[in-house]
């Protein structure tokens, strides 16, 4: 019940603070994109190869690209107010449909990478903190630092070489086996085997971030009085580490995790390209290339939305981890 009212408070506060930010993102990105040389009509004409000045003008008129910038902006905002993300000249479909067809794949990839990096990162961090300054800590720290330094997409390419080229265990790309026409559980299983390598590739950098953060946060918490109190009342070292130290150390870790969600989508752009994963990152990149700015604006808007919602969830997680934290 307390969590529920907290959720309401957190949501309404976020809505008040986040709406101007979202609006700012839309307007700023819209104006920024006007600076990009060329428009969708240029790209479509360039690809068909037989465009005259008349057909270009017709194309621009059809997509509303011939209007002054401010009118275009007003039109876009008007669409948004009607919960429409506009129309994609490139794909000839509403942007909303386009994004919805890609969104599940990106959410699946981001979520699995996020969970994987949090679980593995916190486990690594707790292990390193338990052996702080001894050789298991040093060895794992070095490994984590290497994960922190290697480009994620390159790790992806290397695990393709190992797991799909040399060992043949996992598929190297795509989201489903082409032409396999599976249904039900078999289809799920197929999707999951395709998900493994991209998730690892996207997760490795963030695993390192959370592992390093967990280690230092746990070492920080270990020095506090309540840990000594727990020791004095005779709790075992494992119970102290798990229930008292780790629980408190999770607060900075989850805060940073929330901040990193936007970067997770940025990383997904390259990882989706490596693995041919049909997600939003890939869509965004194609949209830049095709000057399809309605699509790009939609992706940017939605990703900021995901970040904002995730931060509300993290706020709730904090309330559960440490009941003293009140929403401000």
């Amino acid at each position: 019940m307390r969590l529920l009212s907290r959720a309401g408070k957190s949501l309404s506060r976020t809505a008040i603070q986040a709406l101007p930010v979202v609006l700012g993102i839309v307007v700023l990105n819209f104006l920024l994109l006007q600076l990009v040389p060329g428009d969708a009509a240029d790209v479509i004409a360039g690809e068909s190869g037989s465009a005259t000045a008349e057909t270009m003008a017709a194309l621009r008129k059809q997509f509303g690209l011939d209007q002054p910038v401010l009118i275009q902006l007003a039109n876009y905002l008007d669409h948004l107010a009607h919960l429409s993300l506009g129309f994609s000249p490139r794909y000839n479909t509403p942007v909303g449909d386009l994004i919805m067809s890609r969104l599940p794949f990106t959410l699946l990839l981001m979520l699995s990478a996020f969970v994987l990096s949090l679980v593995v990162g916190i486990a690594f961090g707790a292990f390193m903190a338990a052996f702080a300054r001894r050789w298991p800590d040093r060895a794992l720290s070095l490994f984590v630092l290497i994960l922190y330094s290697a480009p994620g997409f390159w790790v992806g390419l290397m695990i393709i070489v190992l797991f799909s080229v040399k060992l043949g265990w996992l598929p190297s790309g795509g989201a489903m086996t082409v032409g396999a026409d599976l249904t039900g559980l078999a289809r799920m299983g197929d999707l999951l085997t395709h998900l493994v390598l991209p998730s690892i590739s996207l997760a490795c950098f963030f695993t390192a971030v959370y592992a390093r953060l967990t280690r230092s946060a746990m070492l920080e918490v270990e020095r506090q009085d309540f840990v000594r109190a727990a020791e004095a009342k005779g709790l075992g070292p494992f119970a102290i580490q798990m229930r008292h130290v780790l629980r408190n150390a999770l607060i900075p870790v989850t805060t940073v995790a929330g901040l990193h969600l936007g970067n997770l989508l940025g990383g997904a752009i390259v990882v989706e390209t490596v693995f041919g994963w049909p997600g939003m990152g890939r869509l965004a990149l194609d949209a830049v290339m095709a000057r399809d700015f309605n699509v790009l604006l939609g992706v940017l808007l939605l990703s900021s939305f995901v970040v904002i919602v995730a931060n509300v969830l993290i706020d709730l997680l904090h309330a559960w981890l440490d009941p003293r934290i009140e929403s401000v």
């Binding site: 994109l33 989508l265 940025g266 752009i269 965004a284 830049v288 990703s303």
Partner: peptide, 20 residues
């Protein structure tokens, strides 16, 4: 303004600026 820049995926922003 800082929050605004932090909400937009940094890599995507770089791609857009390089395209400009």
């Amino acid at each position: 303004v800082t929050e605004l820049f932090q909400t937009v995926p940094a890599f995507l922003l770089v791609v857009v600026i390089v395209a400009i």
